[in-house]
Write a protein that binds this DNA or RNA. Sequence first.
DNA 1: ACCTGAACACCGTTCAAGT
DNA 2: ACCTGAACACCGTTCAAGT
Lengths: 251, 251
Amino acid sequence: MAGQHRAAASKARGPTADRAVGRRPRGTLNREDIVAAAFELVAGEEGVDGLSMPRLARQLGVGVTSLYWYFRSKDDLMAALTEEAADRLYRMLPDYRGRPWDEHLLRYFRDFRRVFLDNPALCDLLVLRAPMEARSPEATRRFFTLLEREIGALAEAGFPLRDAVDAYMTLSVYTRGCVLNERLFRSAEEQLGRGGERMPQPDMDSETFPLMAEAAMCWAPSFSTEEKFEAGVGFIIDGLRSRLAGYVNPL
Amino acid sequence: MAGQHRAAASKARGPTADRAVGRRPRGTLNREDIVAAAFELVAGEEGVDGLSMPRLARQLGVGVTSLYWYFRSKDDLMAALTEEAADRLYRMLPDYRGRPWDEHLLRYFRDFRRVFLDNPALCDLLVLRAPMEARSPEATRRFFTLLEREIGALAEAGFPLRDAVDAYMTLSVYTRGCVLNERLFRSAEEQLGRGGERMPQPDMDSETFPLMAEAAMCWAPSFSTEEKFEAGVGFIIDGLRSRLAGYVNPL
DNA sequence: ACCTGAACACCGTTCAAGT
DNA sequence: ACCTGAACACCGTTCAAGT
């Protein structure tokens, strides 16, 4: 009876909204399913902004307030969702040990960037919203397992521990900086696109801006191309190389 | 009469909320004042999240809907606010021309970072929310003036234009990556602090994580110290130095 | 031209109540 | 123990109306 009532109330929303017409029987709702549904929403068209408690409840065929039995607040849910995202990220990062350290780094961070670009939801949750530290002990453990492996590779290549740590983190910070840039640039484009506008092109007459006018040909807006990303990685790896040479051959 | 009514309605909110008891007379409201008040709100305790149309209207002593005469939407207002923020940023960045290029870069980006750390509002508006490109032609002009100067300094030091552009952007992306990290880390700490909790410290036994356990002493959470920031800048500048040597002395 | 309040659809969260 | 709807305070935005 209650089920019919609910179905009638939502009949105007089309078939997809009715996916859970037969409302969940008791005892079948749990944290995992809620997080999974939340991730589905976030990975969908609307992104992180499209995630709301009412929407999530509708997706699950459940009253909104039921969610609060499993999560104290939306923030609490977001934390769990971030865990889930971190889990997926770690599973997607390949292991390039065995190759020369510079090639290893280049490939690793190239993939690191790719994962975020291909999965905006991961980017929003892990790059834009939460620092690495705000995770459960479990997730932190996996994070440190990864670090142990990657920093170990650098140490083996001859970097003192401190430089190995700093090198990895520098590339990580730089890469996430690129990803942030690209993400913001894309959503700005999208938003303008909806309004039919174009990104304002600066009127760069070569008298007031001689260099920038000339640079236009090697300029990528928001530094957001693979080529530009690799230019930066190149500088950093060059720096590491000369540092490495300095250890064995001090002046 | 209407004024008394309004004052009575808000009497429970304390003195600061009443700052504009005598509601603004007609024709005195304008875009500049609205943006200024919005910036005040955003720079205040609550930050960007604390900015809402009703709050802003209250601050100005105006009906909420009045704001919509001057701004099509909140997004429209945010765009104007971002302009304002970019304006302030550019005014705060010092000119280090005349010094050696490497010292110039180090000092410039050290200040770049400082400005964002000292002004979280600028950070939220310019680093976390909008790409450089989504600005008015006017702001873009000022942005390119800055670029012209900074990239010019690198070109004078002997870098080909393309590398000069990439070098500046790499450091800019890296620096903003650091700022992002630090900002997220701090707000996570703050949020935990409100709940009385502490950041989860990973249980790093030195058997499963030999390197990370040893690295604990040279580890900064979220890479968020000045020292760590400069370590990364050091790598990049080293890379640039070796690149520069390669131009004049190719193998 | 400028400013208003009433109203709408949405949000996060609390609470007292049901089984 | 688990799930519910009613209710609250808040939000962005529209609209018809006032001067």
